[in-house]
């Protein structure tokens, strides 16, 4: 008896999910951040964000196909976090780090918040 562990499987699946998102295939929600719109899959959002998990497990909200975020949320920060959800890569531009961290706090992405904190501390002269 053996088990074959495909070490690339998780990243292969994530790449495919990102391709589906790029092609707007089976995306089922639009996230509105100020005036910008982002299409995504609810399951990916729920898997990565405590806020979206809370929203979409609520029986009254799970069928919504558009969600507006707090107008204070930075659309660029959200775009970077959405990209992270679908690629596992978090782009940290110095000019946006606070916006990214505050957006991660809002989205309840605690591990990303911790990582941003550590990055800021290590970058502080």
């Amino acid at each position: 008896d053996s088990c074959i562990q495909f070490t690339r499987h998780a990243s292969d699946v994530l790449l495919n999910l990102n391709r589906l998102r790029s092609r707007d295939i089976l995306t089922d929600v639009t996230i509105l951040v100020n005036r910008q719109q982002f299409r995504a899959h609810k399951t990916v959002l729920m898997a990565c964000s405590g806020l979206f998990y809370t929203i979409f497990t609520d029986s009254h909200k799970c069928n919504l196909n558009a969600i507006s975020l707090d107008p204070k949320v930075d659309p660029e920060g959200f775009a970077i976090l959405l990209e992270f959800m679908y690629t596992s890569r978090l782009t940290l531009k110095e000019s946006l780090i606070m916006a990214i961290m505050n957006t991660a706090i809002y989205l309840q992405m605690d591990h990303v918040v911790d990582t941003c904190h550590r990055f800021i501390k290590s970058s502080d002269p």
Partner: peptide, 21 residues
Amino acid sequence: YEGVNTIKELGRSIHEIPRQD
């Protein structure tokens, strides 16, 4: 899976969805 012989497969596991058809 304790006691089961685990073999690591490093290659691609599934098809790649193209950027467009």
